[in-house]
């Protein structure tokens, strides 16, 4: 807890965290994801009939960099939004400092691997 004697003290002690930035990120990414994912569902399941949704069709669509970026945006925003939400829960419910460190470490590693695999998979399509 901060025991600042002046504004400069308070700022130097409080300035070292990004909670404000993350809080805003959660609002913006959440709102964006609603539209991105709804658009994705529409294009994948409603606009295209089941017989047209072949492997070749998907690959040819993803050869367009714009669609690649669209999918990658969903991947990154969803992963970051979810990771930060889970971080909130971990900080709220895992009380002991060593446990918190390990739980966070394992969790961030697993999600990091998923993010890298998804990105590599998406961009290896030509």
């Amino acid at each position: 807890m901060i025991k600042a004697k002046s504004l400069t003290d308070a700022r130097s002690q409080a300035g070292s965290n990004n909670e404000l930035t993350w809080w805003i990120f959660m609002r913006i990414s959440g709102l964006l994801l609603v539209f991105l994912v709804l658009g994705h569902i529409y294009m994948t399941f409603i606009q295209v009939s089941e017989s047209d949704a072949t492997y070749d069709a998907v690959v040819s669509k993803l050869s367009n960099p714009a669609w690649k970026f669209y999918d990658w945006l969903i991947l990154v925003l969803a992963v970051m939004h979810g990771v930060n939400g889970a971080r909130y829960s971990i900080e709220d419910y895992v009380r002991s400092r060593p446990n918190r460190f390990w739980v966070k470490g394992v969790f961030f590693s697993v999600v990091g691997i998923i993010l890298v695999l998804g990105t590599v998979g998406l961009f290896s399509i030509r």
Binding site: M1, I2, A4, S6, L7, A10, R11, Q13, A14, G15, N17, E19, L20
Partner: peptide, 9 residues
């Protein structure tokens, strides 16, 4: 000052 204190982690 108070806002900075409440901006803490």
């Amino acid at each position: 000052e108070r806002l900075e204190i409440l901006n803490e982690k």
